[in-house]
Design a protein around this nucleic acid. Structure first.
Length: 583
RNA sequence: GGCCCCGUAGCUCAACGGAUAGAGCGAUCCCCUCCUAAGGGAUAGGUUGCAGGUUCAAGUCCUGCCGGGGUCACCA
């Protein structure tokens, strides 16, 4: 494979030289090199790359860091890729690469295309990303959007980094809320027959159930009208739930999200799966009958000691043990969720990721405890909590209220601002930071809007390619890759290439930390470099992409196109369509 | 009260345990006969909430405080 990740390539060089130093007796044998890093320095004055090898190895080798650094520097400087290696600060080794190495990256990127930045660190491991998992009782609203976007982008990111990814939605169709749905739908069914619906307190009043009522009429005629609830509840529940899920699938599709697997909570009941999961825990002595202490601090007024079936989650890091059965003997919500996660473990996933709303934070420890126990610690579960999205409209906070009818659905958002903008904006914050979503600002075409800013960079690149094509130049990637890239010798151009060289490394870091927002931030930085170089072309004609000399021009266009390749790859991970032109 | 998350420039936020903590907005100033200025550059702005600790190195890890939010047994 050609050089893809320049940082891992140089790290390999560094560790090889460290090995040689060991053989030469300059370093003791058996050193742990895992902490040796090669990374881009924050300050460009510190070179192209720096390594902490000398500082990390000073103590275990019993040698002063600067001595190690100097010996290593001498060796590295002999490599044809390295132009200088300087010891700095407390023992950093700052490396500069020869221009040809950077210039060669442009050809690498053009040849690799979409594959540039793809990684194998996932090693084909199976990872399950569970996200959205909204109750099937209505359309998706804005609160669900962020989780949907983060989950989907994370799934794309992990796939890009070499994981075998399954996107999964857990349908909460086993609890009381789907009974409420059924009763609400039944009223709409009566309405479809010309009767006055009785939307009592506690039922779902939304108009979206009217079509469900009509569909029920179509299917059942008037045969349910005079029947008691026990007669129709189960059928109507199933029917309405299916229609809700159909709607949710369409909502997700409108946002560009496609699940691989929909798992039903209800389907776990009566199959013995819940019992089987709890039996497993029982075998480990993690299930017992007991009475919980009242919560520390404030005790609820209606608190009463109750004997329940409890999961000893404290054995795996939780603060208190958690009930899996209610006092009437039925399962709590937690029990089927344990079974569901056990199911994921037995399906052979090497890693599980759950995307939850921040209000489910209290659920994290018990879920991790359950997975730790049921997988014997083999399968890590990472739970990402998604913070609130605050809506803004006309410069002021927009309050959602079901009663006032100011209920903003996913569809509303996608129809008003588009899936691409929605997705990008949702990834402009870390998952655990609250996010403002301003309906007016996200559509603004200015540099304040990161979506636009990145798209504009790509549009400029396409503009250059278009102009070049008009001049009769062959701008196919394969041709551009053969350009005289050593003409890209200006520091500003090298700096832009260096930014491109960070892409594979960024992908790996983002994937390892399960943080897709890093991709959005990187794209913003890359766009900024591109805009900067572009504008310098205003003052220095020699920095414009289109030049009179066709050889020089081709090289510069190759660079522009390489930036475009990475922007498109990054947007692809975010699930955002690149635009060719701003209109 | 217990637990979880957050606390970084006036504002909104970045920063795989690395060096002199970075962007954008806002403020002051500058750059359009030139590939889309829908952009760019410069200046000012900081004890990373406080106090300890671990480390060669802490915004980042640990402990304790302070402040904000979330959550707290038979809801899902």
């Amino acid at each position: 494979m050609p050089r893809m990740n320049l940082f891992t390539e140089i790290r390999t060089l560094v560790t090889a030289e460290l090995g040689a130093m060991t053989e030469a007796g300059d370093l003791p044998a058996g050193l742990d090199l895992s902490a040796v890093a090669v990374e881009p320095p924050r300050d460009p004055a510190h070179g192209d790359m720096s390594t902490n090898a000398a500082m990390v190895l000073a103590k275990p080798s019993g040698k002063p860091p600067r001595a190690i650094a100097e010996a290593l520097a001498t060796r590295l400087a002999a490599d044809p890729r390295i132009s200088s290696a300087e010891v700095a600060g407390p023992g950093f080794l700052n490396l500069r690469l020869r221009p040809a190495v950077w210039q060669g990256m442009v050809a690498t990127i053009l040849q690799a295309g979409d594959a540039y930045g793809r990684s194998t660190i996932g090693a084909g491991q199976k990872v399950n990303v569970e996200f959205v998992s909204a109750n099937p009782t209505g359309p998706m609203h804005v609160g669900h959007v962020r989780g949907a976007v983060v989950g989907d982008a994370l799934a794309r990111l992990l796939a890009y980094a070499g994981w075998n990814v399954t996107r999964e939605y857990y349908i909460n169709d086993g609890g009381a809320q789907v009974d409420v749905l059924a009763r609400s739908a039944f009223e709409r069914y009566r309405e479809a027959h010309g009767l006055e619906p009785e939307i009592r307190e506690g039922l779902y009043p939304g108009d979206y159930l009217i079509p469900v009522g009509e569909a029920l009429k179509e299917k059942y005629g008037d045969s349910l009208l005079d029947k008691g609830e026990q007669y129709w509840l189960s059928d109507v529940r199933e029917f309405a739930t299916e229609m809700m899920m159909q709607m949710i699938r369409e909502d997700l599709a409108a946002l560009g999200v496609e699940m691989d697997v929909y798992s039903s909570e209800k389907a776990l009941y009566g199959t013995g799966k819940i019992e089987a999961a709890l039996d497993r825990l029982q075998e480990m002595d993690l299930i017992y009958e007991g009475v919980l202490e009242p919560p520390k601090g404030k005790t609820p007024e209606d608190w009463e000691p109750r004997e329940q079936t409890l999961f000893r989650s404290t054995a795996h890091g939780d603060d208190v043990d958690r009930p899996v059965k209610k006092s009437d003997g039925s399962w709590t919500y937690f029990a089927p969720d344990i079974a569901y996660h056990y199911d994921k473990v037995t399906r052979g996933f090497d890693q599980l990721i759950d995307i939850f709303g921040a209000d489910h934070g209290g659920y994290v420890k018990r879920m991790k405890a359950a997975v730790a126990a049921l997988s014997a610690g083999r399968v890590p579960l990472d739970i990402k909590l998604i913070q609130l999205v605050k809506l803004w409209k006309n410069g002021e906070p927009f309050k959602m209220s079901k009663r006032a009818g100011t209920y903003v659905t996913l569809r509303d958002v996608v129809e008003q601002v588009g899936a691409d903008v929605t997705r990008f904006v949702m990834l402009t914050r870390k998952n655990d930071a609250a996010l403002d979503f301003d309906f007016d600002k996200v559509l603004e075409q200015s540099k304040e809007n990161p979506v636009f800013y990145v798209q504009y960079a790509n549009a400029r690149i396409n503009s250059v390619l278009r102009k070049a094509r008009e001049q009769g130049m062959d701008v196919a990637d394969g041709t551009l890759a053969t350009a005289d890239l050593d003409r890209l010798d200006h520091p500003a151009e090298i700096a832009l290439i260096a930014k491109l060289a960070e892409w594979p490394r960024l992908v790996e870091i983002a994937a390892r930390t399960n943080e897709p927002h890093r991709v959005a931030f990187y794209l913003h930085e890359l766009a900024s470099e591109l805009h900067g170089l572009w504008n310098r072309g205003n003052d220095e004609a020699g920095l414009r992409f289109l030049q009179d000399d066709p050889v020089v021009s081709q090289a510069k266009i190759a660079l522009a196109r390489a930036v475009g390749v990475v922007i498109c790859a990054g947007l692809g991970i975010l699930g955002v369509t690149p635009v060719e032109e701003m209109r």
